[in-house]
Amino acid sequence: MRPILEVKDLNYIYSAGTPFEHKALDSVSFRIDRGEFVGVIGHTGSGKSTLMQQLNGLLKPTTGTVWLDGQDIWSDKKLTRQARFRVGLVFQYPEYQLFEETVYKDIAFGPKNMGLSGEEIDRRVREAASFVGLTQSQLEVSPFDLSGGQKRRVAIAGVIAMEPEVLILDEPTAGLDPVGRAEILGNIAAYRQAKNATIMMVSHSMEDVARMTDRLLVLNGAKLAMDGSPEAVFARAEELIAMGLSIPQVTQVFLHLKKMGLNVETVYTIDQAVAQLTRLKGGQCHA
């Protein structure tokens, strides 16, 4: 099957030719298949946000190629613009980009720019609002009267309304309380299931990526350091810690248990931990 996104030898240099020049991406290559849920982790300044902006054609790579569904997005102006709609990008703290008088109009901004018909825009706005759990009455209020968490959901709905095949989110849960985090992550999963969309999520929460994703990309110092399943990545705990990252708390506990001589496998979600512990309680415990 053709990968939905593929990048090869991506390099990006900021402020070339000034004292502030620095390399944000250094020969990054990977491919992503349709329907995958990919987590992107990395220390602050490792190039995650830069990489995300390459994937929908906001930043042009200094060298290297980005293929969306087999087509080089920079080969034609139309394709670049198409990439903006087919790859939806939700920035960090997206609530700061709201500008319209009502929630409805703000969510409709993207679909309007796509040149859709009035009915289609209406359908998409209402559907996107329901994905993120906004009520019909909330559509008519000013986005600036909503709470922080609700504003964030309006902003995410604004991107979802374009019905992108690939949805990229840059730290969608940053600065939210636990309930707000769980809701947003639930919304993302719901969208993925309904539209069979591909999701990429940048996150600093190892628990979130462990629970949600089926693959992890680890960026370190502008380079792609690891690419694999959460099990494979979290098994390399020491390398991750050396990069200034961490592993889920439950994984830490289990690695410690293993060191103490307990017969357990490495786990990275609470569910797996429960399964392991139940198995142990079943009589095989020899600690």
């Binding site: 902006q53 613009r81 720019n113 796509m114």
Partner: peptide
């Protein structure tokens, strides 16, 4: 710059 990128990502021209 950030706001412009965010609106461009929603198709602003």
């Amino acid at each position: 710059d950030k706001i412009m990128s965010a609106q461009k990502a929603r198709g602003a021209d």
